[in-house]
């Protein structure tokens, strides 16, 4: 399978990977590459600040359309800052749970009302 390098800085245009809309642009490209059966290397070179909002849309929502095995086998990140990697890991762990249990939000609302 051929590798595609997606350069986040080139998509965002600044060292700040922070806005959800910019994350959506990254997601669209990764999604397109996966759909074409390509492996993706997501490069965060020169990205200094990342928010979970950006990472949720860029990566988290991949778990809606692809299996964990597909993502693990076909997506690689590189040149990400340590805080960025920590945030991404948390986004990924949350996404796996979110898409497995779509009713979890409703349950948590009911808990706070009890």
């Amino acid at each position: 399978m051929e590798n595609v390098i997606i350069n986040v800085f080139n998509i965002v245009g600044t060292p700040f990977g922070v806005e959800a809309d910019d994350g959506q642009k990254v997601f669209n490209l990764v999604h397109k590459a996966f759909s074409e059966k390509k492996k993706v290397i997501l490069s965060f070179l020169n990205i200094e600040i990342l928010t979970t909002a950006f990472l949720n849309t860029a990566v988290g929502q991949l778990y809606k359309d692809f299996t964990e095995a597909e993502i693990k086998g076909n997506l690689e990140v590189k040149d990400i800052t340590n805080p960025g990697a920590v945030a991404l890991k948390r986004v990924v762990d949350t996404a796996k749970l979110y898409y497995k249990d779509p009713g979890a939000m409703e349950k948590s609302i009911n808990e706070i009302l009890d």
Partner: peptide
């Protein structure tokens, strides 16, 4: 209080709910 708990989000189809807990 609900919104600051880990993994709680109002978003539909997109994960979230991590920013405030972090």
């Amino acid at each position: 209080k609900w919104a600051v708990q880990d993994r709680n989000t109002t978003k539909i189809g997109v994960t979230g709910g991590i920013g405030l807990p972090i």
